[in-house]
């Protein structure tokens, strides 16, 4: 376990994240079919395939560049609301990493937190509306709180909070996005975007554990 990731390690982590999201395409499709139009899985796959393509054979100069380019790739290839929101998390979140040579637990918490705030602003949404924010906001908060415990511990806590947030979306009524027209009928289903957040942070945590 390392407590600091340089640009190359962050790139390797984002490639692991991409592979994990792509491997879960069907789970994301099924989650979206229950509550939306069923395109979340293939959209996220398109976006993270673009991240893989961007990061392979590229020598990044900084962790900020890795996250920014990942965000650009997601935003240009995913499409839909997911492309705008997930692209914004990485692109805007990357600004929190300006000037740092390595990511540690504290800067990772800042990245998640700033990315979350930017995504909320872009989507005009807040936690509690059954969106990806319901997993990302608690994850960012947990990462910051557990920053003194080291990178793996912070990501492990972030993941646990994201999963807890994901489960809470089950009881929520969707009040934004395509699912809002379901109203009460959206109760009982998890939010597919929140599931994507869990997968992303899960892969980050597993990377931190084995590095």
């Amino acid at each position: 376990m390392k407590n600091e990731l340089n640009a190359q390690a962050v790139s390797a982590m984002m490639q692991a994240v991409s592979l994990h999201v792509i491997a879960n395409t069907d789970a994301l499709t099924d989650a979206d079919l229950a509550i939306g139009d069923g395109d979340h899985g293939i959209g996220m796959r398109r976006g993270f395939e673009a991240v893989l393509q961007q990061l392979s054979d590229w020598e990044p100069e900084s962790p900020e560049a890795v996250m920014k380019q990942s965000g650009m790739a997601i935003m240009s290839k995913t499409g839909g609301a997911a492309g705008a929101v997930f692209g914004t998390v990485f692109r805007s979140g990357s600004k929190a990493l300006a000037g740092v040579a390595t990511i540690d637990a504290a800067s990772l918490g800042d990245f998640l937190s700033d990315g979350c705030a930017a995504a909320a602003k872009r989507g005009g949404a807040a936690p509690g509306q059954k969106t990806m924010l319901d997993a990302l906001a608690p994850a960012a908060e947990a990462a910051r709180k557990h920053a003194p415990d080291g990178l793996y511990a912070a990501l492990d806590a972030a993941h646990a909070s994201a999963v807890n947030g994901l489960e809470k979306t089950r009881a929520m009524v969707a009040t934004t996005g395509k699912a809002r027209s379901l109203g009460e009928r959206s109760i009982g289903h998890i939010d597919p975007g929140a599931l994507s957040i869990c997968l992303i942070i899960e892969a980050m945590r597993d990377f931190a554990k084995t590095t």
């Binding site: 139009d37 395109d39 293939i42 959209g43 398109r46 935003m75 240009s76 290839k77 995913t78 499409g79 839909g80 609301a81 997911a82 492309g83 705008a84």
Partner: peptide, 12 residues
């Protein structure tokens, strides 16, 4: 043009 049922990206 976006993908099926998905908005086009800002780039497009």
């Amino acid at each position: 043009c976006g993908q099926v049922f998905a908005a086009p990206s800002p780039e497009i």
